[in-house]
């Protein structure tokens, strides 16, 4: 077991002639809150898509807790221990809040389809256990009151929280948050920062997040990587990186 949860070496992807991500190196220690920032179109979400198997990297290597997961399909990567949220929220809108989280527990429920159809004892036992676990998770995000509501009917901020709860239900080692504060007002962002901290501490989670909100980034990230046009612009401790003249130029222009 290495001390790094995630090690990305020389990661590249090209779409036709476009090098969307070019030679990214990143090391995230266990339990770290790591930020991936950069101007629009820098390739941040593309990195996430490669980490979660949506895209296959053209070259490079991704190691999760000592296991090579480069180019594996999404399902295998989730089972290996990466869960994510999405920039544009992707909830199961026509399912209840509780069922969204229980869907996340899918691979942790040990009964077969046949047992489910025949309603054998294991079905009831496992469903009960899953419901309890899901309610626990919902309580963490203060969503337990809305458990029976349709996910689509939740207000925006709570939908973001539900997505995190669903990702955590898969029991990951590494949680990827894609712009968790997008579209939130300052109060909600403040609350979200506390939630992320809480998740890291109570679940002993390693978290990698993409964010535009500098307040959130400087508030909670311990280390940062800055991407610009698919290339690494700067890397290191948050305060140092944010004061780097190269980074300021990339964000604000000359």
């Amino acid at each position: 077991m290495s001390e790094n949860m995630l090690e990305v070496t020389n990661l590249c992807i090209s779409f036709g002639g476009l090098r969307a991500v070019d030679g990214l190196n990143m090391k995230i220690r266990k339990g770290q809150l790591y930020g991936l920032i950069g101007p629009n179109g820098a390739g941040k979400t593309t990195v996430f898509n490669m980490l979660t198997g949506v895209y296959k990297p053209t070259s490079g290597k991704i190691m999760l807790d000592g296991e090579n997961i480069t180019g594996k399909p999404s399902i295998a990567i989730n089972r290996a221990g990466i869960a994510r949220t999405f920039q544009n929220i992707r909830l199961f809108k026509n399912m209840s809040v509780l069922d969204n989280v229980k869907a996340g527990l899918h691979n942790h429920m040990k009964y077969t389809t046949i047992e489910g159809i025949l309603r054998l004892p294991r079905y009831f036992k496992e469903e009960k256990r899953a419901t309890e676990k899901a309610m626990e998770l919902l309580k963490v995000f203060e969503l337990d009151g809305e458990a029976q509501q349709l996910a689509a009917n939740l207000p925006y901020g709570k939908q973001r929280k539900l997505e995190i709860a669903r990702a955590l239900a898969t029991d990951p080692k590494l949680l990827l948050l894609d712009e968790p504060a997008a579209g939130m007002n300052p109060n909600e962002t403040e609350e979200l920062m506390q939630t992320i901290h809480f998740v890291r501490d109570s679940f002993k989670m390693t978290i990698l997040l993409i964010e535009h909100d500098m307040k959130l980034v400087s508030g909670i990230c311990e280390e940062l990587t800055v991407l610009n046009f698919g290339q690494e612009l700067a890397q290191g401790e948050t305060s140092a990186v944010l004061n780097d003249p190269k980074v300021i130029t990339a964000y604000l222009g000359e």
Binding site: R79, L91, F92, K102, A103, H106, R119, A130
Partner: peptide
Amino acid sequence: NLINSRTGRAIMSIRDNRIAAQSIGI
């Protein structure tokens, strides 16, 4: 019974959002 089981939830999650369903290992 199928709909109201783990399998049914997986099927409905595919209906609602295929990419998210894959991301949680379905």
